[in-house]
Design a protein around this nucleic acid. Sequence first.
DNA 1: GCTCCTTGTCGAACGGCGTTCGTTATAACG
DNA 2: CGTTATAACGAACGCCGTTCGACAAGGAGC
Lengths: 235, 235
Amino acid sequence: MTVPPPPWRRSPSPRRRAEKPLLSRDLVVKTALEMLAAEGFEAVSMRRIAQRLETGPASLYAHVANKEELDELMLDAVLGDVPVPEPDPENWAEQVKEQVRQQVRAMVAYPGIAKVAWNTPVPVTPHSLRQGEAMLAILRAGGLDLKQAVFAGDALSLYAKAYAYEASSWTFGDYDEAEVAERGRQMAGYMRSLPAGAFPNLLQSGQFFTGETSKDRFEFALAMFVGGLQSLVRA
Amino acid sequence: MTVPPPPWRRSPSPRRRAEKPLLSRDLVVKTALEMLAAEGFEAVSMRRIAQRLETGPASLYAHVANKEELDELMLDAVLGDVPVPEPDPENWAEQVKEQVRQQVRAMVAYPGIAKVAWNTPVPVTPHSLRQGEAMLAILRAGGLDLKQAVFAGDALSLYAKAYAYEASSWTFGDYDEAEVAERGRQMAGYMRSLPAGAFPNLLQSGQFFTGETSKDRFEFALAMFVGGLQSLVRA
DNA sequence: GCTCCTTGTCGAACGGCGTTCGTTATAACG
DNA sequence: CGTTATAACGAACGCCGTTCGACAAGGAGC
């Protein structure tokens, strides 16, 4: 129990600068990323970041405009880990898939970061732009015109975000195994309670919907979409 | 300025039941949906629903387990508006697309409701299941085996969620025009500040990325994916 | 050397959120 | 008529992002 400072002498605690690393934009982002990797997106709040840096929440605002900006900085840092290839016209379809895979991989390492991408209308951070340009370059090397490439790139980045988010949720504790199992039981029970044959396909499909098939589902969707692109190029 | 009641006589306000409609699960959901349609998802909080029903937040918990359950009830109600077709093997590809379009249409009418679908691990509500089964039925009529149908259905529902969410954000005030324009300027400025030719494709692609092209982008992605499915069936 | 001003720090508070606790008023039942 | 079950709900708890204003330290100008 610390005694409150006497009112006639304000600020009795001289800042111990030396003991504490100086606050900076990079330090804030770095700390946030550590928490993100360890505890997931929901656990990263301005207050908890400040706590970890042994300061008050207000201090962060000297280095970061607000939470939204910090979110974007985190996302940008994560995307910085994703390399971009030299476009190869002979191999563009595989390059497209690999690029999306890498984006997903990077985002899954920071569970929930994909959520940020959903709330960002127009991504403007350097690494976002780098990824966007790289994807467009690959697609154009494959023979798509600009408009087609832009539309395809948009859909692909959407894929990446969506699957990264889903995969994060499965691998991380966003919803736990017990709850999912309970829901599975609820669903089966409900379907069986109805007139036989009301849900003939769904009843059999539970096996394909686990967290383990997540990767297969991802690859399937990617293959279908890129297959469609290939048909488009041939036409 | 109302005077607080004297402490020796508690609860001075007799409940005027007659004036107020009785609270019920349906009433809570209905009220929440009205607010959702009018003000968007973020504006729907337990406290504001209660306020609108002229009661306190605690009263809602007699009819709804928590916010999450209420969210799912809202989503289910929205999906209830989406009809399901009789599968037609001759026309399955178009049926698939139309089903996704309808789902998106329904969700866009309640801005932000798509967000709920992302946070629901296994959808178990009746209308969710009905939609899932309908999609599987169409796909199987088209000639896909069960596993393929499940994977495709998963990807398609993901599409629906994603585009519904994006479209909500554009048409609704989630991010306003001024901010988007500012970001566009930032992006252009940044790209031009770099060595010429660093972003050759992105520089020209701004015109395709507005809210107006949202529908075109959606149709393109859908066409590509379903095109891929058709190739798969033919093989 | 002294003042002034900028800049980073940060405690306290504001208004929001979802949820829980414990009390009260009403209706139904014995 | 008394008792009990239940819905209603005020108040509070502990979160959240953000703002305000006071304060310390360092450098600039005189």
